[in-house]
Structure formats: structure tokens, C-alpha cells
Write a protein that binds this DNA or RNA. Sequence first.
DNA 1: GTCTATAATACGATAGAC
DNA 2: GTCTATCGTATTATAGAC
Lengths: 199, 199
Amino acid sequence: MSSMTSAPVAERRMSAADRRDAILDAASVVFGERGYVGATTDQVARAAGISQPYVVRMFGSKEALFLAVIDRAKTAVLEAFRSALEGWREEGSPTGDPSCVLGPAYFELVRERGVHTSLMQAFMQGSDPVVGRAARSGFLDIWRFLREEAGLDAETARLFLADGMLINVLLGLEMARDPAGQELLAQTFGDKLDVLPPA
Amino acid sequence: MSSMTSAPVAERRMSAADRRDAILDAASVVFGERGYVGATTDQVARAAGISQPYVVRMFGSKEALFLAVIDRAKTAVLEAFRSALEGWREEGSPTGDPSCVLGPAYFELVRERGVHTSLMQAFMQGSDPVVGRAARSGFLDIWRFLREEAGLDAETARLFLADGMLINVLLGLEMARDPAGQELLAQTFGDKLDVLPPA
DNA sequence: GTCTATAATACGATAGAC
DNA sequence: GTCTATCGTATTATAGAC
């Protein structure tokens, strides 16, 4: 009876791999909202429905957990970009600039909660010896993708990244909480960022 | 002999106002590097050359100190913008877009250490009830300046803000620490952001 | 105006049971 | 695979002296 359910839907016991994914899902959101230092392993544990020591046990340390979170977020961004780029190349590629398909791909990632914000929180930890190095490396991976794989020139890549950083900031600010902020969101990105955190 | 020096140059005793400014200078840098939660009042105190309890005594709480830091940073940005805009209007105003003088004004603020980064750290604390509200309010003040005082249309304001956020991120990443990062800086903003933190 | 000493708490991590 | 109990430490804030 208990062995019939195998989908990862809030079970008491999970395989280590499923549990790991569930923790990463929770951690992405919590780190994205509170930042690397501000988030506690206990908040991650509650969000994942398990005990705090188990979170630490699973990843070894808070630092290792955060590194796993930002690596997964970077991978999600790059996979979304590669998929969009491939689709664009298979089709007629109407305009000469692939950034018009990469932008929508970036917006769609907002649905996968915590991707933009956890990455951004990492970007602001440049002074941390370990996290800072990983954050720079992740940012540079995305830069290299834009320049080398997508073939954007430096100026186009800068404009694209700048828009991305503004999106990240507006999410980090939780701009939709403020009435005037909603107006700003509407004027800048239409309704694509009008997301309120569930809390 | 001791009463002859009155400039705020690392004295043992200062007027409350001078000491307050010195603490804010130190706090801007420390908060900018480590973030609101990651920075400790003790780190601020050491950077300011005084004791930790005195920092707290002076501002009441770490939260109040951070609010003072971001308010001062926002004011510095707006004053730099207003000054640049005024100069542009007094002259011939060659192009029709004031953002070409606001950009350089923003870059010059990098010399005033901690302005961009402490603001950015605040922007990523949107989920904090007190700090988040102040951060949104500060961001909206800058947005309103761009739209209403500088007269930028929504699209131009968005592009300008996006560039600003990218600048903030590259500073937060301390991109100049990485060789490949220096190359990125050179390709995107020339030598205007090639600043290494003294630490 | 500024310090030392310290209280109070929150947090990451470990030990060990089941 | 997961929990409870707990240690050690770092950090904000207060009390009180000078």
C-alpha cells in the first residue's frame, strides 16, 4: 500500500535523489527571498517539510547547499536559452538577432520560482571567497553563451544582460507588493513580472 | 594643541554629526560588500575605528543604520542626477535625451564607495517588511525622477535603469577579481568599472 | 562621546537513536 | 532515510563606567 506511490509528492520517506531535489526546490525560493546569509537552514527545512539537521546532513553545509542551488539555477537558465536558440534556428529565424527568443525564455523561467532571485542573491556576494568565485563563474558562463553560442555582439549581449538584471531586481524588490510598483511593472514589462510572492 | 584640529580626520573624539557621517561611510562599504544580513555591526565598527556598541548606540539598531545608509545612497544618486540634468539644460543640450549625461553621472558615483552596492543589497531584500518597503520606495523615487523630472519615456527609462542594474551587479560580483571578468568589464563598460575592492 | 563587560538569542553543525 | 537533542559560536543589544 505504501509502495504503490512513487511520485515525489510530499511523502514521509523519499529516495535520496528525490529528497535532494525537493530540498533544492525549497532552498531556491528561500535563498532567493532572504539571500545567502539571511536564509536559515531551518527555513529551508520547514519549506521542504523536513528537519533542519537533515538539510545539513544532506548537503554537508549551508554553503554547499547554496552552491548547489545556484549551479542548478544557472543550468536552468542555460538550458532554457539553448532550447530557445535551437527552436529559433530550426525555424525561419525571421530577424537576425536571437535575443528576441532568449528574452521570452528568460521570462518563462519566472514560473520556476527562485531561479532569478537565488542567482541574483549570489551575484551580490562577490566578496565571499567561495560563493563569490562561483557567482562570477556562473555569470561568465552565461556571458560566454550569449557571445559564443548565441553569437551576440558585445553591445547586444550587454543590453540583453542589463534587461535581465533589471528583471532580477524587480523580482528581488517584490515590486508587485506596492501599488506604484505595479504601475512601474506595467510600464516596463507589461504583465510579465506582475507576480506576488505567496507569502 | 588638540583643539586646533577640527576636520573629521580619524580623531579620538568627534562631534556626533561627524561621527555619524563616518559611521555611514564605513557602513555603506560594509553593507555593500556583505549585504544587509551578512554585514555585522562589529565589522562596521572596525571599519569606522570605534566600538561595536557605539555603532548601535548611535543609530538605535542595525536596521535603522541600514535604512540610513540606503537613504543616503538614494539621495546621492538623485543629487548627482539633478546636478547633471541641470548642467545639461544650461548648455546647448545637443541631443534630445538627457540620459546621456545621467549615465556618466552614475559612473562617477562609483568613486563614492558603497553607493551602488548598498542600494543593490537593499533591492534584494524585498521580502523584509521594513527594509523591503524602504527599498521599493527608494527605487520608485529614482524611477519617478527619470520619468517626471528628466522627462524620459518609459522605454528610455527602462533601458537606463537596466544598464544601471547591470553596473550594480558587476560591482556586487567584484568582477575585476577574475581575469575573464576583467575582459567582460572591458567589453561592456570599457575601463569605467575596472575597480578592485581594496581588500 | 566612547568604552568594557555581558546578557540574550539565533543559528549551523554534530551525535546518536530509530 | 529521518528525527530529537544539544553543543558551540557569532551577533545584536543593553547596562553602566569614565
